[in-house]
Design a protein around this nucleic acid. Structure first.
Lengths: 195, 195
DNA sequence: CCACCAATCAAACGATTGTTTGGTGCGGTG
DNA sequence: CACCGCACCAAACAATCGTTTGATTGGTGG
């Protein structure tokens, strides 16, 4: 019990770190093997190919994100509360798994078309979750009428960008940052009734 | 007159396109040379090294952005108007030079430390411009009191992300997108006086 | 017509790349 | 004790990488 990381998980973690720091193509199998103190050929005992490894990391990233956000979208909360929670949760998830998330957000173009399509499908599914909340809010008159597509991109840009600058040593926790974001967006979206 | 692109500029444009589509490390000198119909060795008549080429592209990107935004920051407009114009201009610039901007935003880690430092200095200078507007707005009571650092990152994430999804064939022009962004952020920041 | 210069070619360089193959040691199980 | 399979090694592979060198072209100004 306790330290339950298999050798394979170790490999994934090391690879995610290297891919996120140096980039996929700038990281060699040699680099990964060095960190694990084995020869680079030995990596193929655990993985099918370098690109297969990349795909697995990206899938892990997007799946983690989706697992944590979907319950919020499917809850019975009002749209504004849903949106606030989504923004906070997305921010926290990125800050919790920065390496996996950076790889997921950064290396789409490094995948061959078939695998890229699969990740893109995940991504579109996620986009859809966000847009559903926005559309719901606009429909119910909770949010001002806005271009849902553009606002969803604005929102995703804001939260995804976090991987570029967040540091656990910074002055604010991930949750606090998420709250600032949520306040900003909600204040920007809420329909103030000056009746 | 008219078609005044030198061979060297052609090289830069081709390289920016390839770097932005495939990534720096996934693009070989061969790829670039092929597009220009010359041998890869011949490229060194124009450039010092592959990394030098990358640096030049990134410098072009950030300089273009700064040239267009600085006049706004240094103008005499009120903070809210400054911010709106900055957001619009940033959005338009990214949409106008998507290849250069994508390279600038994506390939920092591909530069060796000395050159990376130089680009980082530019980037920090730009961040400073944005924060100055925000701080000014908060000071004058035009904006609500907010965490300037976090809000500046939120804002930059929103506009920088544009390179990931913008298409000139989309339903909205870059200026219209910039206006949606500006409205969202301003509405989120303005101090409503319920006196 | 000669001299020059920019643009390009032709060919080679050592290094590194991802991947494959066949083998080896070892801990546990029947 | 025999065996199995996991984890890894050792060695090689063809290919590609960025870069350098020296020669060669074609056009332009003197």
């Amino acid at each position: 019990m306790g330290n339950e990381t298999t050798r394979r998980e170790e490999l994934l973690i090391v690879a995610a770190r290297l891919f996120s720091r140096k980039g996929y193509h700038a990281t060699s199998m040699q680099d990964i093997a060095d960190e694990l103190n084995i020869l680079r050929g030995s990596l193929y005992h655990y993985i099918e190919s370098k690109e297969g490894l990349l795909y697995e990391l990206m899938e892990l990233g997007i799946q983690t994100l989706m697992e944590r956000v979907r319950p919020i979208v499917e809850s019975d909360l009002p749209p504004d509360e849903k949106l606030a929670r989504l923004i906070r949760q997305h921010t926290i998830t990125i800050a919790s798994y920065p390496d996996f998330m950076a790889v997921f957000l950064h290396e789409l173009k490094s995948l061959s078309p078939p695998r890229r399509e699969r990740i893109l499908a995940y991504r579109q599914e996620y986009d859809h979750l966000v847009r559903r909340i926005l559309a719901e809010g606009v429909e119910r008159g909770v949010f001002r009428p806005v271009d849902v597509r553009v606002v969803s991109f604005a929102l995703l840009g804001m939260v995804n960008w976090v991987y570029q600058w967040y540091s656990p040593d910074g002055p604010l926790s991930a949750e606090e940052i998420g709250t600032v974001f949520a306040n900003l967006v909600l204040q920007g979206l809420l329909d103030r009734d000056d009746t």
